[in-house]
Amino acid sequence: MDNTETTSGRPPQTDFNTVFNNDLDYPRLGNVTFRRGTLTENQEALFTENWPVLGKDLSDEIIDIDSWFGRSGHKTIVEIGSGTGTSTAAMAPLEADTNVIAVELYKPGLAKLMGQVVRNDLDNIRMVRGDGVEVLVRMFEPESLDGLRVFFPDPWPKARHNKRRIIQSGTLNLFASRLKKGGVLHVATDHADYAEWINELIHVEPTLEYKGWPWESCPQLTNRQVITKFEGKGLDKDHVITEYLWEKK
């Protein structure tokens, strides 16, 4: 993996096929960029004060999970694309014994989640700012996670953009590689075409066993508890929510 950094201080996008020596499909992301957004004065102050403890930026530093959370022997779940963190913060008190790491590019989204973390004293949430696929490959050891969540990823509905979707054969392989045996991958979408896309990939990764939905004996919390902003928009348009669960073999 090339560790040289761009002029913006971020590592270049990984050549996944070379790194993993395969010909699988990975999201075509172009340059890894941070989505811009404006924080309020209070959000900026809160972010500046708490980010050094609660947050990390995309880098080539492998995260020491036990050290970061200040505890050992606890399950760890990574949520890719946590948005404004509505469901992240709502689920956290119900899984207090689980370390939750929210990964998101959008700084205002992370700032909103941080506000909930600080106000509600949610000590089991940490945050990483960066592209989720890059964060997984650069910052987490293989077989280090108990769960991965991808809730309502960008559907990239235009056919020419389908290759930008995060759910691809290569990313499913990457997800599986970061999960421990028995670890759980949970995906949800409210976009019918994306659901059809995922349906074609359900069995593509041989180390992931598809468990369907619901999976009553799932070893981790699967009830998202609240209607997220994007899910709410989907329901307003009478979209069907489709959920998927896999277990690492």
Results as ranks from 00 to 15, higher is better:
Asp2Ser: 13
Thr4Tyr: 15
Thr6Pro: 09
Thr7Leu: 13
Ser8Leu: 14
Gly9Gln: 14
Gln13Tyr: 09
Gln13Lys: 08
Thr14Pro: 05
Asp15Trp: 13
Phe16Asn: 02
Tyr26Asp: 11
Pro27Gly: 14
Arg28Gly: 12
Leu29Glu: 02
Arg36Trp: 06
Gly37Thr: 06
Thr38Leu: 15
Thr38Asn: 15
Glu41Trp: 05
Glu44Ile: 07
Ala45Phe: 03
Ala45Arg: 09
Thr48Met: 07
Thr48Ser: 11
Thr48Trp: 09
Asn50Arg: 09
Trp51Tyr: 00
Trp51Lys: 00
Leu54Ser: 01
Gly55Lys: 04
Glu61Gln: 00
Ile63Asn: 04
Asp64Ser: 00
Ser67Trp: 03
Gly70Lys: 07
Gly73Ile: 01
Thr76Tyr: 13
Ile77Ser: 11
Ile80His: 08
Gly81Asn: 06
Gly83Phe: 12
Thr84Met: 12
Ala89Glu: 07
Met91Trp: 12
Ala96Val: 12
Asp97Pro: 08
Asp97Val: 07
Asn99Cys: 13
Val100Pro: 01
Val100Leu: 13
Ala102Asp: 06
Leu105Gln: 07
Lys107Leu: 11
Gly109Phe: 06
Leu113Phe: 03
Met114Ala: 04
Gly115Gln: 13
Gln116Trp: 08
Gln116Glu: 09
Asn120Trp: 05
Asp123Glu: 09
Asn124Asp: 01
Arg126Ser: 04
Arg126Tyr: 03
Arg126Val: 01
Met127Ala: 03
Asp131Gly: 05
Glu134Trp: 10
Leu136Trp: 10
Arg138Leu: 11
Phe140Ala: 05
Phe140Gly: 06
Glu143Asn: 14
Ser144Ile: 13
Leu145Thr: 11
Leu148Asp: 12
Phe151Cys: 08
Pro153His: 01
Pro155Ala: 04
Pro157Phe: 01
Lys158Val: 02
Arg160Asn: 06
Lys163Thr: 07
Lys163Cys: 06
Arg164Leu: 02
Arg164Ala: 00
Arg165Gln: 10
Ile166Gly: 09
Gly170Leu: 08
Thr171Phe: 03
Leu172Arg: 06
Asn173Val: 04
Ala176Tyr: 07
Ala176Pro: 09
Arg178Glu: 00
Gly183Trp: 02
Gly183Leu: 04
Leu185His: 05
Leu185Tyr: 07
Val187Tyr: 03
Val187Ala: 00
Ala188Arg: 10
Ala192Ser: 08
Asp193Cys: 02
Glu196Asn: 03
Glu196Pro: 00
Asn199Arg: 09
Leu201Ser: 00
Ile202Glu: 03
His203Tyr: 14
Glu205Asn: 06
Pro206Asn: 03
Pro206Gly: 01
Thr207Asp: 13
Tyr210Arg: 11
Lys211Asp: 05
Trp213Leu: 02
Trp213His: 09
Cys218Glu: 02
Cys218Tyr: 05
Gln220Tyr: 04
Asn223Gly: 02
Ile227Thr: 12
Ile227Asn: 12
Thr228Ser: 15
Thr228Ala: 10
Thr228Gln: 10
Phe230Met: 10
Glu231Asp: 14
Glu231Phe: 15
Glu231Thr: 14
Gly234Phe: 15
Leu235Trp: 11
Asp238Pro: 05
Thr242Asp: 03
Tyr244Cys: 07
Leu245Pro: 14
Trp246Tyr: 12
Lys248Cys: 15
Lys249Arg: 14
